[in-house]
Amino acid sequence: MSQSCIIESCCSTLGILCHCCDKTFCPDHLDEHYESINEQLKPLAEEINTLNDQIMNKTKMKLIGNCLDKLNQWRNESYKTINNFYEKKCRELEEYYLKHTENHRKEINEIESELNKLIHEQNTTEDDIKLFQSTIDILQQQIKELHQISYHINIRSFELNQNCLSIEQIKSNEIDFTLLSSPFKTIDCSNYILWKNGYIHHVCWSSTLEKFILIISNKEIFLTDGNFQSIEQINIDPEKKWRLCACSETSLYLLSSQCSTEIFEFDLLSSFQLIQRSKLSHLSQERDYITDIIYNNETLALAINNRHKVHIELRSCKTFDRLWLIQLGSKPYSYYSMCLLNCNDWLVLDHKNSLLMHITSNGNIKSTVGYKEPPMAALLLHSNILAIKTENYLNFHKI
């Protein structure tokens, strides 16, 4: 006895079993079922085409492009070395030839000059003719003897040492965001842990204290462990409205809303005593707005926005002098955040335009790629996993 269609609203009594999913459908709904399955294949086909393009083009250049460039350079330099050696030996042969024929050519030129002179003067005697003939006979004999001489060049077969070139596979820490794969794991952020102490405006990790430092509601500062089991509020100038924070091994750096172009440095090892308050040169309190700050290796990276342009800059933690600056174009009021990468490179996240920008350690844009959703924050984990937070999801990518 045949079963009815699995679609509840279907009144058909004729049921056909789909052997793929072991469900029963009427003929019409079975066609729709097959069509829906086929529709799921289209994005997979597109993804396969993308992977094929990567493996045939981008991956090839990524894996062997640099080696091919070096190999071509080696070939050109080898050709140049061989040509230089060839030209040197050609010059040596020319020198041998000139050395053995110089006297003969000189004597021939002298005889030719004397003959032309006598022909012009028309005052030739029989003795002159005999003398010239005798000299020519002697030269002819000398040239015949010269022809008996030959040079031999010993050429060994060119033997290339196979060990002069070797190909090795190495693991590189370099990241290529143009090859960023789809997330291998995604977390729905609607299932988050409820924080009851106010809005978390900014957060940084202190390896010295082994705790997170949180700025709550633009004012209060908390210390907490990774499991939020221990929460401690610290009092740092409660009159200030703190916005951003960053940590070194010994210092906590804070920025406030009232003094947006000044950095306050506090001592982590002495109950957060103020070390210094430094105004950042080249920035305007009225015009510039810092949207993110990250510490790395005695430097601070700052993302800065104003009414006309956006830029990223790196400053020394000792003097707060600017080390480099890179303009990101005229994108006023855009929100930018940053993430530290391997080799002191940086990842800049453009929330408004859904872009990821790879900035090198010396302040150059290496690549810019689009992201499927506006990125809000990112963190590199274990040097090969990149976590990117969007409004609703936390995506994990292998890099």
Rank of each mutant, 00 (worst) to 15 (best):
L160Y: 15
Y192F: 15
G363W: 08
I231Y: 10
H351I: 05
N161R: 11
L180G: 05
N49E: 10
I385Q: 12
Q142C: 08
S113A: 06
K88V: 00
T50Q: 13
E249D: 12
Y96C: 07
C10E: 08
I108P: 00
S278C: 07
F228Q: 15
S248K: 04
D292E: 10
E298Y: 06
W346A: 01
L274Q: 12
I359E: 09
D188F: 04
L300K: 03
I111D: 00
L44T: 04
S330V: 05
R307Q: 13
K23A: 10
C317K: 09
N296S: 04
L355Y: 04
E112L: 06
K309N: 12
K88C: 03
Q141N: 13
I187E: 13
D292A: 09
W205Q: 10
C21F: 06
A45M: 13
Q258D: 03
F85W: 04
S78F: 07
S207H: 13
S150M: 10
C204F: 07
F272M: 13
F264M: 06
F25L: 15
L118P: 03
K42E: 05
L254N: 03
Y151I: 11
D267W: 04
R315C: 02
I16H: 08
H100N: 10
E39H: 08
E159R: 14
N191V: 07
